[in-house]
Design a protein around this nucleic acid. Structure first.
Lengths: 337, 337
DNA sequence: TTGTAAGCGTTATCAG
DNA sequence: CTGATAACGCTTACAA
C-alpha cells in the first residue's frame, strides 16, 4: 500500500513563507516571480526534495508530456536502434517516452493505443502493426497525434514516415547485374508488410527491365532463422542463384551463414548477397554485408519535430507523408562490377 | 495547442443518465454496481469513446501504475532482450513502462530518477549506472520502490538482482583447462562494473588454483569493436593465449572475428573462446559461442513480482538481495575435454 | 509581483 | 446500490 509521501507544493509554500501559486510559478518557465521569492522557493524545494507532480500538471494543462512508443520485436537490432534514437530525441525535446510492447498478444496495437489514451499521451509513435481505423479516429479526435513509421497506411491525419523501398530494390538489382550476376533471387519473409513488399516489387521490376528473371521465396519472420531456411530452399535448386537480395539484414545473416557453413559457398565469389537495414552486425567482418541503411536518425528527427511543432490536421495532407532515402552501404558481399 | 477533447466521466454519466460516481465505479474492479447501470454506462462509454484518465486516477489513488525503466545502451542485444522481457511482464502485471534513456548525458541516472518522481512512478528499475545516494533516499522516502539489476550497490532499501559472476568465472576456467588450454587470458572492458570485475576475479582465482596464470587485458567498452582491439593486443603477444574468456558476448564476437579473419586462427582448434550473456548472435553459426546465459526471464520475473507484492522496507534485508545463476551454454568455441 | 479561488477528471466517504 | 461531496496537486485567471 503506497502511502502519500511525496512532498507537495503546499508544503514548499509553507516552508518558504509564500503562497502555493508562487511555488507553481517558480516551476513554470515563463512566469513572473521576483528573484527573491524564486530563490526562497527553490531553497525550500531543494531542502524538502520537492518535484512538480506531472500527473497533476498534465491534468491541468491537458498536456501530459508523454509520448507513447508502440513496438514489437524490441530485441531486434534495427528496432532497438530506432527505439534508442527516438527516446534520445524525445528526451531532448522535453518529452518522456512511454513504452508499449506488442509482442505477445493480438489486436495489441489497439490496446496499446488505448493505454496511450488512458495516460493522455500527447502523441503515439507506432513502429509495429497497424491500428484499427476506429481507434485511429478516436486518437485524432482526442487531440492525440499519431506517427506511423514504415507502416503504409492511407488514413489521413497521422504523420507517415516511409522509405524508398521500391527504388532501393531497383538500385540493388542493377548492382547485382553490374557484378555479373545472372540468376537473381529475392529472399523475403511471409510478413508481407508494405516495406518488405516494396523492396521485392522494386527488385523484380528493375531486374525484369534488365532482362533477368527473379526467383522469389518467402518464409517465416524477418529473422536469422528464416534466413537459414530460405538459403536451404534456394541453394538446393537446380539453377542456384548467384545474386540474392534479402529483405532484411537478419535474413541476410542467416542466409550467408547457411550458404557458407552448410553449402561451402564463398561470398562474394560464388554468391553475392545484399540486405536491408544496416544493423550493427552487417559491419562485422563475419558478414561484411552490403546493405541499405535505415536513416534512423532522420526518421526520429522528423517524427519528433512534427510532434513538437503544430503537426495538426489543418495542414495540407502532403505534409503528413514523408519518404526518406535508404543509403546503399557498399561492403564486401557483392563483387565490384 | 492541444484542446481539451478527451471525453470525461461526466459526459458519459449524462449520456447514460447516471451519476459520475456510477461511471467511476463501473471502471473500478471491485466496486458495487448493478448489472443494469453497468451496462448502460458501458454502452455510453463505448459510444463516446471514453477511457479512464489515469493521470487523474493516479492523482487520487496516489499510485500511477507507471514503472520507470532506466537504461543505457538500449540498442545492445543483451539490454534490449532484458528490456523486452521486463516490459512484457510489467504489462502482464497491469503496469505501464516509462522509459528513460541515459545514453548521452552525465549524472543522467539521477535525472532519470527525478523524471520518475515527477511522474509519480510506483517504481524504478535501474539497468545502467548507479544513482546518487541522496536520490535513492528521496525515492525510498517518497514511497517509490527501486530495483537495481547487476549494479552491486550496498544501500539498503532497493531490491538488488545479481548473478553469480565470480562462480561463473571459475566454472569456465576449469572448462578451459579440461579442454587442454595452457595459456589463459581474460578480455575485459575498461568499464569496471562489479559484474565484469566479478567474472574477472573468479576466472583468475580458479585458474591460479589450477596452476595457470591469466593474462588480463582491458580496453574500451563492452562492444564488438573493443573485442577486436583486445584480440589485436593479445594475439600478437609472444606467448599467444590459447583460451580466452571474454567478459561479454559482444567482446567475444569481435575477438573471434579478429582472431579468424586477421590472424587466421581456427576456433576451437588453435584458440578456445568463451563469452557471457548468450545474446542471439552467440548461437549464429558464424560464432557458435560457448557462453553463460543471462537468466533474462528470471530477472524480470523477480523484479516484477517484488514490485507487485509488498516489497517494502519492513522486510528483512536478505529479501532485498537476489543472486541468480548464469547457465553455461555449451557450444563449439571450446574443444570438448 | 503576489495571493485568492476556481477548476482539471478522478476516486473515496458517507448518507440515503 | 446510488448520488452528493470532499479531496488529490497542480495551473491560471482575476483581483489586489
Amino acid at each position: 500500500m503506497p502511502s502519500k509521501l511525496f512532498v507537495s507544493a503546499q508544503e514548499v509554500a509553507e516552508k518558504a513563507g509564500v503562497s502555493r501559486s508562487a511555488v507553481s510559478r517558480t516551476f513554470t518557465p515563463g512566469a513572473s516571480v521576483s528573484a527573491d521569492t524564486r530563490r526562497r522557493v527553490l531553497e525550500a524545494a531543494e531542502a524538502l526534495g520537492y518535484h512538480v507532480n506531472h500527473l497533476a500538471r498534465g491534468l491541468m494543462r491537458n498536456e501530459s508530456g508523454i509520448v507513447c512508443l508502440i513496438v514489437s520485436d524490441v530485441a531486434t537490432p534495427y528496432r532497438s536502434a530506432l527505439l534508442r534514437e527516438l527516446t534520445i530525441q524525445l528526451q531532448n525535446a522535453g518529452k518522456v517516452a512511454m513504452f508499449v510492447n506488442t509482442d505477445r498478444s493480438d489486436g495489441s496495437v489497439d490496446r496499446a493505443l488505448q493505454q496511450a489514451i488512458r495516460y493522455r499521451a500527447d502523441a503515439s509513435i507506432i513502429l509495429s502493426g497497424l491500428p484499427d481505423k476506429s481507434i485511429t479516429q478516436l486518437c485524432l479526435r482526442s487531440g492525440q497525434r499519431l506517427v506511423l513509421i514504415n507502416r503504409d497506411d492511407d488514413q489521413p491525419g497521422p504523420l507517415k514516415i516511409n522509405l524508398d523501398d521500391y527504388e532501393s530494390g531497383g538500385r540493388i538489382a542493377t548492382a547485382f547485374v553490374r557484378a555479373g550476376c545472372k540468376r537473381l533471387a529475392f529472399a523475403n519473409s511471409e510478413a508481407g508488410t508494405p516495406s518488405l513488399m516494396g523492396r521485392e516489387r522494386g527488385f523484380i521490376a528493375a531486374a525484369t527491365k534488365l532482362g533477368l528473371e527473379v526467383v522469389v521465396e518467402r518464409y517465416g519472420s524477418t529473422g536469422y532463422e528464416a534466413g537459414r531456411v530460405l538459403a536451404q530452399r534456394m541453394l538446393t535448386r537446380a539453377e542456384r542463384p548467384d545474386g540474392v537480395f534479402c529483405a532484411t539484414d537478419l535474413l541476410a545473416c542467416g542466409f550467408m551463414d547457411a550458404a557458407r557453413h552448410q553449402f561451402g559457398l564463398s561470398i562474394p565469389d560464388q554468391l553475392c548477397v545484399a540486405g536491408f537495414d544496416d544493423i550493427e552486425q552487417a559491419s562485422w567482418s563475419s558478414f561484411n554485408l552490403t546493405t541499405f541503411a535505415q536513416p534512423v536518425m532522420a526518421i526520429a528527427t522528423r517524427a519528433v519535430k512534427w510532434l513538437a511543432t503544430g503537426g495538426h490536421e489543418d495542414e495540407p495532407e502532403e505534409a503528413h507523408s514523408v519518404r526518406l532515402k535508404a543509403e546503399l552501404i557498399w561492403r564486401g558481399s557483392i563483387r565490384k562490377g
